[in-house]
């Protein structure tokens, strides 16, 4: 239920910022449409801690700036490779362990991998992510596990250690 309320608040804010009108009639119409959207989402049963992961917003304050910096660095690397006349690519396919405890964590980690150019996650299977890398440097940068640790800290809380448990704890927040 808490997720439905937060979804309603979020949608109302979204509606207000997109429209920019503050007349009574339009506000009421907006509230009605928000209500319909929330009811439809409740009937579809897509509101849970996976469908609407509102608890990650606060912890994300440390994750997103770091990920942005990683994306900029990776972009420069890939740009150098593409502009090199010899095209010094070295394509690699390998697997990395995803140390997150639930599937939401795997999604976050795989999306972070894909978001940095130079590495693309091409398959997710039982806590293992198959990665296609453009260069050896990009592959080794991913294999040292820094991004895994950060994603685990984002999803499971800062105290969670990536090595100790493997999927025995299902994250249930609501």
């Amino acid at each position: 239920m808490i997720h439905a309320i937060s979804l309603g608040i979020f949608l109302s804010l979204f509606w207000l910022l997109l429209s920019g009108y503050f007349k009574a009639l339009l506000l009421i119409l907006g509230l009605i449409s928000v209500g319909i959207a929330v009811v439809v989402a409740l009937r579809m049963e897509v509101i849970d801690h996976e469908g609407h992961p509102v608890h990650l917003t606060l912890r994300g304050t440390w994750f997103w700036p770091w990920l942005t910096w990683e994306i900029i660095k990776a972009n420069l690397d890939v740009a150098k490779v593409i502009l090199d006349p010899k095209l010094p690519i070295q394509r690699l396919v390998f697997r990395v362990k995803a140390g997150q405890s639930d599937e939401l964590g795997h999604v976050v980690y795989a999306n972070a991998i894909t978001l940095t150019p130079g590495t693309v996650s091409i398959d997710v299977n039982d806590g293992e992510i198959t990665v296609h890398a453009l260069t050896r440097g990009a592959a080794e940068g991913l294999a040292n596990g820094e991004m895994d640790r950060r994603a685990t800290a984002l999803v499971d809380g800062p105290g969670a250690l990536p090595k100790d448990r493997a999927g025995d704890r299902t994250g249930g927040t609501g």
Partner: peptide, 29 residues
């Protein structure tokens, strides 16, 4: 991108590989 990569993988496009990543780092057991 991930959906496209999975579709390509299952649609029979083999990713060409130029080498192996020797597992010298602490990537995980």
């Amino acid at each position: 991108t991930h959906a496209l990569a999975r579709a390509a993988l299952q649609g029979g496009v083999e990713p060409q590989v130029d080498g192996e990543l020797e597992d010298s780092s602490s990537a995980g057991p």
